[in-house]
Nucleic acid binder design. Structure first.
Lengths: 341, 341
DNA sequence: CTTGCCAAGTAGAGCGCTCCACCTCTATGG
DNA sequence: CCATAGAGGTGGAGCGCTCTACTTGGCAAG
């Protein structure tokens, strides 16, 4: 008596249904080459045994995984999780599985995570703003079709999907100029990934309009926003509008201005970036730039699918952000401007 | 001439190093039964070929995966991602791999996600507040060692890890009573998972102190908080303190109170739950209840590891939350209370 | 009645690894 | 000088599937 230990296998199902293992395999893969009668017999047997195809064996035998590995730098950042959501939907449409890992914010963790995805022989790699150098990324990119999202890394090895920073900066500056602002400051987060691109875009947008860009050092967090605001308010000619590195920094700005009795937007307008949940809160109501985060993931999967299907040229996609106007921006306080001059 | 197409295999490495495949296997698994000389030879060959063991083949042959599947109801909720982070750390310590999936907030998605984890024959399942019925969860729990986090489902089939709602409610009520409050209201979110437990704990805490619990219907979001606040402020004897279902609802309360010119905490104290990033923002500064979210995941993995190692009795763990005092709570406005009476 | 064809099903060789049983040395003790 | 042990290594049978090539049994056409 051979006791079937553990999970039932295809042979168990075949024996129970009185057919060959190959037939069971065909049924499991929805092949049309099976008669309705046999199909039902097999499905009934499978159901009864609680059979579930073993993915490891299937992928080994077929040599395909129909799986893409998704590595997210930071799960805490809603940016990435929403991106992953978009990717998951798009993957689902194409019959691809998603295997998600995270480096838990450490570079070493990211390498380990990517290594383990490669060990699984995933059909492709989707890297969400890895904090790894372009060189390291290119090394991985050479081993599997790869798309990097929000890494701003120009390379000839893998595809990328990024936010169009130029467009975002233009939206912001246009909005502020329309409201009569000319002294516009940017809180720079060049210390972190994505910061340099955002700053450069701001400077370009300003100079293109004949305006002098004001830039102060900062970071992508509340504390940095607070400090930068303090610095800006203390200027001889303070700006009438502040474009913060992101929503968190903008919140820091708002906190400082409130504490100082500076009215928003009457005295100073404030703009964030990202349109996080924070921006929409009633008491915050922050004008900000929205990135269609799900589309990033969706696009990345599309590019990846093309790559898996054999495309060899490299593509760099830019996604267009849009401005979300709330109550932290308003007409420039022209009186102040004139007075001080 | 046999062209080695695709990735190199163990045989390629063995051939290159001039040893048997079995030896390569031993080296890859860090076996002590290999001489230093051979080890180096094999590693050098592997390095040169860019060899990486195929996980599918390994798991199939060994019958073990050393992997636990983690299903998260909602990646947008920082609660779950931080829980996952704790789980990932704990898993790492035990040499376990984490395989993460999400149901993307749909019950059908959750079932599919869990099914795919089971198809991978993961050693265990960690379910993060699945929005599935206890019966369905028990069905899965019967197929693999399972731990459910924050589902509040009492069952004899799998282990659970939950927040100690009783303790949390006591912390809140004690804090408010210490500040002189007696008319305390709770915004109930019984409509959603976890809500009923929170409400029950509040009612218990109040009655145990001889106080009459005030409860209004709501939900775990800003809008519901706003509406509930409106209702409460309109009462003949409005409460002097509001315990919102969570931070988001508390933010809604703050918005409404601000709009109505009700001062916080001078006129009414407000308490949230979860200690999300929102609570810490300067302009919000919300007193709230903090749950050590990483420890949830850590504990879950510990329980899972015990289960995998053969423990058969069921465990239900409660994790102790703690109060984080910020500026949305203060002494009760006794004057008002007396006046109205 | 033969031929050809198609639909339905099967046998068996892998996929890349692990693991058990076994083999081959060299050093050691009696 | 032989028995013995242990370190170091090998061969080959699986793990649970897929996939190619092949078989079989009807049935329509000639």
């Amino acid at each position: 008596m051979v006791a079937t230990v553990g999970q039932p296998t295809m042979d168990d199902v075949a024996a129970k249904a009185g057919v060959s293992r190959a037939l069971v395999s065909l049924v499991m893969r929805d092949s049309p080459r099976v008669s309705d009668q046999s199909r039902e017999k097999v499905l009934a047997a499978a159901q009864e045994l609680g059979y579930r195809p073993n993915v490891w064996a299937r992928n080994l035998a077929s040599g395909q995984t129909h799986t893409v590995g998704v590595m997210l730098n930071d799960l805490h950042n809603p940016y990435f999780t929403e991106m992953a959501e978009g990717a998951a939907m798009a993957a689902d449409d194409r019959g691809l599985q998603i295997m998600m890992t995270s480096g838990w914010q450490r570079a070493a963790g990211e390498v380990a995570a990517i290594e383990s995805l490669l060990a699984m022989r995933t059909d492709g790699l989707l890297l969400g703003a890895a904090r790894l150098s372009v060189e390291v990324l290119e090394g991985f990119g050479a081993q599997a079709p790869t798309v990097a999202v929000s890494t701003y890394s120009e390379t000839a090895v893998f595809d990328t999907v990024n936010n169009d920073e130029e467009h975002g900066a233009n939206l912001i500056v246009d909005h502020l100029v329309d409201l009569g602002h000319t002294r516009i400051a940017h809180i720079d987060a060049s210390i972190a990934a994505g910061g340099p691109e955002r700053k450069r875009a701001f400077v370009n947008a300003m100079t293109a309009r004949g305006l002098a860009p004001i830039v102060v050092d900062g970071d992508f967090n509340e504390h940095a926003g607070r400090e930068a605001a303090q610095q800006l308010v203390g200027l001889h000619e303070p700006p009438t509008a502040i474009f913060a590195a992101n929503d968190l920094a903008a919140i820091g700005v708002l906190s400082h201005l409130q504490a100082e009795g500076v009215r928003v937007p009457n005295d100073i307008s404030v703009i964030g970036y990202d349109d996080t949940i924070l921006a929409g809160i009633g008491t915050v109501s922050l004008t900000t730039v929205h990135q269609p985060r799900q589309r990033f993931g969706q696009h990345a999967i599309e590019l990846l699918a093309e790559r898996i299907d054999g495309r060899t040229d490299v593509r760099h996609e830019l996604i267009q952000p849009r401005l979300v106007t709330r109550s932290s921006t308003g007409r420039a306080a022209t009186s102040t401007t004139t007075k001080r001059k």
